[in-house]
Structures are given as structure tokens and as C-alpha cells.
């Protein structure tokens, strides 16, 4: 599946991963989360080797992965409870993270009552609530509409400013990758490998103004240029 994929993520760094469809971005993330076994190579988080899901790493899913029978409160509390948090801890932390993602007042709502944007805020709060060192984002905004997506991108930047973690952000969107990432890794091919790593030297914190900077447009074009050939090739590959 993969060949020669080797990269590090610093403690407070956002690494965005882009690549053509079917190059295994999501699979890579699942391996890092310990959800999928890898038969060669090693994945380390701090000084812990990943063989199965470990504490300190939390994932935000493209499909949100909220439990429909749980309220916002119970969904956000889920990770904490699985980590064995005390009742008092849950009562204290959960409202804090619900507020952080802007869902204050919706504690007793069920997922079916909420828009996609609200659902993903909830998914983000659930991941943040376990206070991970590494946040894995699997195309988290791919399932929401374009406007909501933009809102959520800046919400994520605001939240990351308040609680910085290492973050690996998989996305289809070059714009999103350049806006959020401190580095952008472009994957290619099957078996997939790192095509290029592009350092995004845009000033922090990133805001809406970032989108208007000439440097932003340059970097976007650079990533696009790198990706384009791969994307064109990937478009015409038949499934095996």
C-alpha cells in the first residue's frame, strides 16, 4: 500500500496531507490511529509505538461517527468515559469542550436534530475532550456544504490557537491544506509514497486575511502544480 512514507510531526504543528483520490490518505491515517495493522514500518507517537489505538491520539471522522442514540453531551463524553474519567471529571470537562466548539446550549440535542456542521463540531469536541497530543483529521469537512466548510476551517484555527496539538489533516482540498497546514505533504501513486513536502511559510495565526495574501495564492499554485500530474493519472486508473 505504501512505500517510503516517512515524516515527523512536531508537537504544535499542523501537517496537511493531500493526494489524488485512492492514494491511501485515509488508510494512512487509520494506520497512524492504530485502527489498521501495518505489516512493515513503524509508527511512533512520542516514545510509544502504535500497534493499536493508543491514548493521546484522537481522530475526527469524515462521517462524523456520532452515536445517534447519544445526546451531544454523551457523545462528547464518550472518549472521556472510555478513558476511565471520573463522573466529576466528565461533568467538568464536557461542558467546557462543548462551549469551545460553539455548541453551548445544545447539550441535550441528538445528532439527527443537528446540521452537518453542528455534528462535526460535536465530533471535534469529542476528540478534543480526551486532550490528545495528536489530533487526526480524516477529511473532517468533506461532508458539509461549502459555506459551512469555510466557517469550520476558521473555527478549527481558533480552537487550535486555544489548544494547540500536533495535527495531521487529510483533505482533498488544496486550499484547505494550504490554509491550515504548516507543511503540506503531497502523496502520489499506488503504492503511495511522498511526492513532495511543501513548507507553508504563511504568518500565524491564519485568518480570513491569509486567503488574500499573494503568498497564499503562490503556495496554492505550487501545491496544485505538484498534485496535478498525479491527479490526472489517478483519474484514469481502473480499480484492480
Amino acid at each position: 500500500m505504501f512505500r517510503n512514507i516517512d515524516f515527523d510531526v512536531a508537537e504544535r504543528e499542523i501537517v496537511a496531507i493531500v493526494g489524488p483520490s485512492g492514494c491511501g490518505k485515509t488508510t494512512l491515517l487509520r494506520c497512524i490511529d492504530g485502527l489498521l495493522p501495518h505489516d512493515a514500518g513503524e509508527i511512533w507517537v512520542g516514545n510509544q509505538r502504535v500497534e493499536e489505538p493508543i491514548a493521546g491520539v484522537a481522530m475526527v471522522f469524515q462521517h462524523f461517527g456520532l452515536f445517534p442514540w447519544k445526546t451531544v453531551f454523551d457523545n462528547v463524553a464518550y472518549g472521556l468515559r472510555m478513558a476511565g474519567a471520573s463522573k466529576a471529571e466528565v461533568e467538568r470537562k464536557v461542558p467546557e469542550f462543548i462551549k469551545l466548539v460553539g455548541l453551548g446550549g445544545f447539550e441535550t440535542a441528538f445528532p439527527y436534530q443537528m446540521s452537518g456542521g453542528m455534528q462535526q463540531r460535536c465530533g471535534l469536541a469529542r476528540a478534543l475532550a480526551v486532550e490528545p497530543n495528536v489530533l487526526l483529521m480524516d477529511e473532517p469537512f468533506a461532508a458539509v456544504d461549502a459555506q459551512t466548510r469555510e466557517i469550520l476551517q476558521f473555527e478549527l484555527l481558533r480552537i487550535w490557537d486555544e489548544r494547540p496539538t500536533a495535527m495531521i489533516f487529510v483533505t482533498h482540498s488544496i486550499e484547505e491544506a494550504v490554509l491550515l497546514g504548516h507543511r503540506v505533504i503531497v502523496l502520489k501513486g499506488r503504492p503511495s509514497s511522498i511526492h513532495e513536502t511543501i513548507v507553508i511559510d504563511l504568518p500565524n495565526p491564519r485568518t480570513r486575511a491569509t486567503l488574500r495574501e499573494p503568498r497564499f495564492a503562490e503556495l496554492r499554485e505550487q501545491v496544485w502544480g505538484t498534485l496535478m500530474r498525479e491527479a490526472r493519472e489517478a483519474e484514469f486508473v481502473l480499480e484492480r
Binding site: D33, L35, P53, I54, A55, A58, M59, F61, H63, G65, F67, Y78, G79, M82, A83, R126, V130
Partner: peptide, 16 residues
């Protein structure tokens, strides 16, 4: 499968 994957990601035990 998504539900089970989320549960595993958050380190749920089999019984839980």
C-alpha cells in the same frame, strides 16, 4: 462499521 471503528479509536474494551 463506522460505530465500531469510532469505539475502537476511542479505545473501548470489547465488553463496553
Amino acid at each position: 462499521r463506522e460505530f465500531l471503528e469510532v469505539a475502537r479509536s476511542f479505545r473501548s474494551g470489547r465488553w463496553r
